[in-house]
Amino acid sequence: MRRRDFFKTSVVASAALSLNFDGLQAALASNTAAMEAAPDLVAVMGGEPEAMLDKALEALGGIGKYIKKGQKVVIKPNIGWDRTPELAGNTNPLLIKSLVKRCLNAGASKVTVFDHTCDDWQKCYKSSGIEAAVKEAGGIVLPGNDERYYKSVTIPGGVKIKEAKIHEALLEADAWINVPVLKNHGGAKFSCAMKNLMGIVWDRRVFHSNDLQQCIADLCALQKKPVLNIVDAYRMMHQNGPQGKSAADVATTKSLLASTDIIAIDTAALGLFNQVKKLEMAAIGHITKGETLKLGTTNLEKLNIKRIRV
């Protein structure tokens, strides 16, 4: 929506807006034809993680659009729980493996992967299969278990959270990619791209005690935004999230979403989630609160969405 308003009125993008719309910047730099070709959101269904990732990246105009030669890149999956990939508590390791490879192929000087886990970090990194996947692909796995790794930054746009300790790997990176797994969530109701950012902060206690939904939205207003969000919905935990009890909590939906718009991608992911379990947008305060903070749009109608079946 805003993108179109923007064109119609031919207003020069404000600094804040341009930060949110890296895709748009790239499009402006080239021409309108490229702009039309590059969708705001890509949804892929029916393939294996690697194949779906490639389809999505291709539709978006290639990983080179987001990752430049020589850049230090951080990939932030969800590795929160001591769970095997089949239980869908964490991002699919095959997706992470392919993504690390794509970033390195795009010329990234270094690709680092971390999460501030809930369960013991070493168990999580191992059980999730992500540590092994990253190492095989040539990336680096960093722990997020110690306060020492975190540095305080201000979040000017935040309502409740105006300062947070963020993992230094992310702060020092030239670009970072947000790769959540789509899940039901006991506290936030829904865990996807926005909620995944809670894994980049040290003190989550203040989040829970200061209006969790608002805090999640505030955190997404962090100046250092992901260059791309990729939602893993190959397996989806539709109940008992975010940890899950058993395979009965998991639906195999074989899907993947990609977008620079964190609000839009969560809105779309909710649509996908609703295919399995009903969940009202109204219950997921952080998405609408994020829209209020002008972090993106929930109005998918006005976006250029590309749907791909593999």
Partner: peptide, 14 residues
């Protein structure tokens, strides 16, 4: 232990 169900989804839902 809950029964593991197969979920068929016919579209993206958006």
């Amino acid at each position: 232990e809950e029964e593991v169900k197969e979920y068929e989804i016919d579209g993206f839902g958006f």
